[in-house]
Design a protein around this nucleic acid. Structure first.
Lengths: 404, 404
DNA sequence: TTACTTTGTGCCTCTGTGAAACAAAACAGG
DNA sequence: CCTGTTTTGTTTCACAGAGGCACAAAGTAA
């Protein structure tokens, strides 16, 4: 009997790694690409030419402002006219859609307000419709789609496990619904086109590839959205999602045994002690209904942190608890970099010294000296992360863009 | 100018994965090897023949007791006469040396008693000498050496960061000392021959490859030695050591805010609340000096758990605290399997229902149903793990055995 | 200008692996 | 016992990815 292998052809095996290097900006020239891939110049040249032929990167052989000795190297860059992916995000107050090219470049964005409906199909239908409009306006080719949701997403099922701050039922099959919406809108090509993941996880992935997390080997991200706290860990460039997608759901770490009651049944959880509502209440402010809690909390810090001692005390209170939670994570995970997002980023900016001091004091075995704490650096990092996820098949095998 | 690539030749690229499949018992026949590698029968045959030629595996084409239809497949197995690695372990009461073949087969063992000297070179010199005697007696070829120590080991420095229960100074360069001892004994071939890591980490690795952790995607191990508590996480077959080797050093998780004082400065740490000494004291027993605390504690459980209510109550106390610590880890790491070693294994055996109940009650979002809790299944799992680490270069590129 | 350095390109070769056809070793059924 | 079926091992051929090498190209340094 004849025998056919089950796995698909690898194609040029250095193609994927090469595209990833250009995508993340680690291969600005062909010479660097040669070194990073560990191949000969001939191979690197062939690979670059093939990626250029696929319309994914540009190879610029024009006079570069080199200044160095020897023949100047051709400059490599992501093709700004290349294909895009559709990135979508659902959050507590609405949704966002965007087109994102390689290199994490956001090409177009469309916001949408809430409230988020109880039926995921309704919201995702609107997001996808917005994305479709963006695609039509831009006239660009779409090679994938990714969705960020404020909930852990189980793999391989693609279900939202704990959409605590959305009116969705736990276990909602968000990925399948998303795929159906894509198919209905005529966007997706195959049935496995369209991926979904947790927003903080995706934000961490984006920061690792294009932002403040570049080069980190063990990147811990903690962020508040409008409600609740999320965490993520990127190890050697890959998301650590745990066995069921619930890893790093750090919202219910205890950071104050006598703290306020949490809907999880515990007391003094990171979630209720360090989110925007906690800051407003600690400062004695009544949250207004007009704008999001996150914006109210950030505004409060920006306008009154230096003026009002009560606001400063409230910030201190949150920072102490945040640092306690981070110290627990540091002692278990041993990251080399920590990135804070949302309100936590602002707390770091206004009260970073205190955060660092508490954190160092609680880190065992002098670990405090081994990691940096940074604010997140990308706008829309969850969107960019959703795009990363959508790009992944292409990064793994760039030849897909011509097949699809 | 001519151009030579920097990376070494890959050789036959399926060679390493093939050896690993046989090594871990996942490829008992050539047909299975073909399927697991995802290559054609021709390739699998060539690979198996090459590994056989290297003296690493045996290919048995004799009449197998098949029973199934079709031509019986050749049976693959680790060559019992193949090369070995030297595995060494230092613990609080002494050391152990062993020769370990592929497949985690312990070929020979030599124990050594304590006390452990303050100078690492002295202890490691003794271990290596014991290993050398084993090698001479057996007459087998040695292709690597690994060392397990009761401390986190920093990479890439190879220093013992927190040898809390040994008289060694933090930061002792154990790997370099180990390598020097190997060189002095004429065992090692190259300068990079000889690796060192934490004992619980290595135990987890061994359990994952050859024991109760087989097939787990996210394996969490927690174990007590004679003193203290260690943890480890194996993700997709690789140890999660963190950025400085201190990940999963879980001994100082707080499991009882009003618990006893710990030398780390905290209170109620897992370390002091669930180790052998804690059980003896909770049961109102005075620890004797004759045998190790671990043996005294295990003996106490075995002989009096069912007879003495005070012992049962002490076990309950430890189990509750252990479960609390595990729940915290589960909620952050989301493992699909947990393996307990040392005294914790005995607590699981005698009081498993209670452990499981507390653990499930504390696991958020119904995660309790997604993981198993098992006792560790290998004798000397730290030794076998040290051997795994030593074997790794050969598993990555089996052609090394002929070069060395 | 000339020498030197670094990078890009064309050509040949090597090697790992797939594809296909065939042989071998078991079982099932007459 | 013979024949057909199923599964596995073996042989042969071919192809593609990547290395090795020589040479060309494009800068800087003197």
């Amino acid at each position: 009997m004849t025998q056919t292998r089950t796995r698909p052809d690898r194609g040029r095996s250095a193609l994927g790694p090469a595209l990833e290097l250009v995508h993340t900006g680690r291969a600005p020239t062909r010479a660097v690409l040669t070194a990073e891939l560990g191949v000969t110049r001939a191979t690197a040249g062939a690979v670059a030419a093939e990626l250029q032929g696929l319309g994914l990167i540009t190879v610029d052989s024009s006079p570069s402002t080199a200044g160095a000795q020897g023949r100047p190297s051709h400059r490599l860059a992501v093709d700004p006219a290349g294909p895009v992916v559709l990135a979508a995000q659902v959050h507590t107050d609405g949704f966002r859609a965007a087109l994102v090219g390689l290199g994490g470049r956001v090409v177009a964005t469309a916001p949408g307000c809430g409230p988020v409906e109880a039926d995921p199909a309704q919201v995702l239908g609107e997001v996808v419709a917005a994305g479709r409009r963006l695609l039509e306006e831009s006239g660009r080719r779409c090679v994938g789609a990714g969705l960020a949701v404020p909930s852990a997403v189980a793999e391989p099922e693609g279900t939202a496990l704990n959409p605590l701050h959305l009116p969705w039922a736990p276990g909602a099959p968000v990925r399948e619904v998303f795929r159906r919406c894509l198919a209905d809108a005529g966007i997706s090509a195959g049935a496995d086109d369209g991926v979904a993941a947790n927003d903080v996880n995706l934000g961490a992935l984006a920061e690792h590839r294009h932002g403040a997390g570049r080069g980190a080997r063990q990147l811990l991200c903690v962020a508040t959205g409008h409600r609740g706290v999320g965490g993520a860990l990127v190890v050697d460039g890959r998301l650590h999602t745990g066995s069921s997608g619930l890893a790093l759901e750090v919202g219910h770490l205890t950071v104050d045994p006598e703290g306020r009651a949490c809907h999880c049944g515990g007391r003094g959880c990171l979630d209720v002690e360090t989110d925007p509502l906690a800051l407003l209440e600690a400062a004695g402010r009544r949250p207004g209904p007009e704008v999001s809690l996150l914006h109210q909390a950030i505004d409060l810090l920006r306008t009154e942190y230096h003026a009002d001692p009560a606001v400063r005390a409230a910030a201190h209170r949150l920072v102490d608890r945040l640092a306690l939670g981070l110290a627990g994570l540091v002692n278990i995970l041993d990251p080399d970099r920590i990135i804070l997002g949302g309100l936590h980023r602002e707390l770091l900016r206004f009260d970073g010294d205190r955060l660092r001091a508490v954190l160092d004091g609680r880190s065992l075995w002098g670990r405090g000296k081994t990691f940096a704490v940074l604010p997140c650096s990308l706008d829309h990092n969850s969107l960019v992360g959703a795009a990363e996820l959508a790009w992944q098949p292409v990064l793994d095998d760039p030849l897909r863009v011509q097949v699809v």
